[in-house]
Simulated scan of single mutants.
Amino acid sequence: MMDSSLASTSYQQSRTKLETYFDKTARKAWEDLTSDVPVSGIRATVRAGRDTMRELLLSTLPTDMHGMRLLDAGCGTGALAMIAAQRGAEVVAIDVSHGLVEIAQKRTPSHLAIDWRVGDMRSHNLGVFDHVVAMDSLIHYDENDIIGVLKAWSQRASHVVFTFAPGTPLLRTMHFVGKAFPRGDRSPAILPVSEARLTQDIALALPEWKIDFTQRVSRGFYKSQAMGISR
């Protein structure tokens, strides 16, 4: 169950749209994107960008994670969760999409014990963690909802790494132009936000936390900004 105090109409609306998109429209497209099968040129740049981003986020985590608990928030088809589990972490991996979690479960090697879940990544019922990683799961929410999610995680973790869509003129233009591409080459709604404003809001909402790093990954049609915060 979600804590009702975390409820947000805009968050819930965005979450419902994501669930519909990934389960009813794009499950096969994302299964292909996160595999090694040939994809279109546009999606190939997205695949390359996501691979680079995953490596960046993983580089912020210990190489030996035995005795640590990690939340993979918005786990998708599970590549990051599996690597963390291989490092020894106790991994809880959650996504809004039943379909993507099913793909992740099928891909999981038998020797890895990952707690795969479908639900809300903010839920208190997920427990307490050493690390929270959210790769390209907050890019679909506005700035206020991003802060709300970070506040929820701050109650149960001391280290969070996440990505957001940087609010640059180029990215805003690319998102607008992207509406002209065929459905198979479209992403769900991505909401660019200002890095400067997000930084200010984090300082106000989480005064005991500090920003450890911020780094952008740009590969063709993949544009995403990584940020790490800790207490």
Rank of each mutant, 00 (worst) to 15 (best):
F181E: 03
Q12L: 12
L171V: 08
F22M: 07
M174S: 03
D212K: 10
M53N: 03
H131T: 01
F162E: 02
S230D: 09
A157V: 15
T60P: 00
L204S: 15
A134C: 15
L170P: 00
T20L: 09
L18P: 05
T34L: 14
K24R: 11
K151P: 08
D120S: 11
G220I: 02
A134V: 05
H159Y: 13
Y141K: 05
G148P: 06
P109L: 05
V128Y: 13
T52M: 06
F181N: 09
I190E: 09
T214W: 02
D185M: 07
G78E: 01
V96M: 07
T52V: 04
G184W: 00
T63R: 11
A134G: 12
Q215F: 03
A29I: 12
M68L: 14
V193N: 05
H175Q: 10
D185C: 00
P207K: 14
S5Q: 15
A79V: 08
A44G: 05
G148A: 08
S154A: 15
V46L: 12
Q155M: 15
K17E: 14
F181W: 10
A180H: 10
A7N: 14
G148K: 05
I146S: 02
A29L: 06
R107A: 08
R117H: 11
M1N: 12
F221E: 03
W153Y: 15
D120N: 11
S137Q: 05
F213Q: 07
S10N: 14
A180R: 09
Q215A: 06
K179Q: 13
